[in-house]
């Protein structure tokens, strides 16, 4: 079973659980397992195309899945998967 670290902003959707264990072979399977148990997580972990949104980073152990196989990245048994929100912003004149 892999351990998933839930960041503070998303704990309100996991009954305040900070760590969960999930049986999954890939990051996508892991997200689907989480969403099955905690449906309100879906809009924060998957966009309309079924991809991880740009403002969420996911690390399998110490590796960013964007440098691996994205949502298809393998999750080994006993892996630690960290969900890390992107923390960013800017002053109003940076509007696109």
């Amino acid at each position: 079973m892999a351990t998933v670290i839930i960041p503070t902003p998303l704990r309100r959707f996991t009954n305040n659980a900070a760590r969960l264990t999930v049986e999954a072979n890939s990051v996508l399977e892991m997200i689907q397992c989480l969403v099955k148990d905690f449906p309100d997580l879906k809009k924060h972990l998957l966009d309309a195309n079924g991809k991880v949104p740009s403002f969420i980073n996911i690390f399998v152990d110490d590796d960013d899945i964007r440098n691996l196989q994205q949502e298809q990245t393998v999750v080994k048994e006993n892996a630690t998967v960290s969900i890390v929100p992107a923390i960013a912003g800017g002053a109003p004149s940076t509007k696109a």
């Binding site: 960041p7 503070t8 902003p9 998303l10 704990r11 309100r12 924060h44 403002f55 929100p85 992107a86 923390i87 960013a88 912003g89 800017g90 002053a91 109003p92 004149s93 940076t94 509007k95 696109a96």
Partner: peptide, 24 residues
Amino acid sequence: IYHSHPNSPAVPSELDRIAAQPYF
């Protein structure tokens, strides 16, 4: 999270909104 807006009001930008997380 806190951040400063040098020479700008303490009002969130669109970039602030897009990156904002629930709860925080």
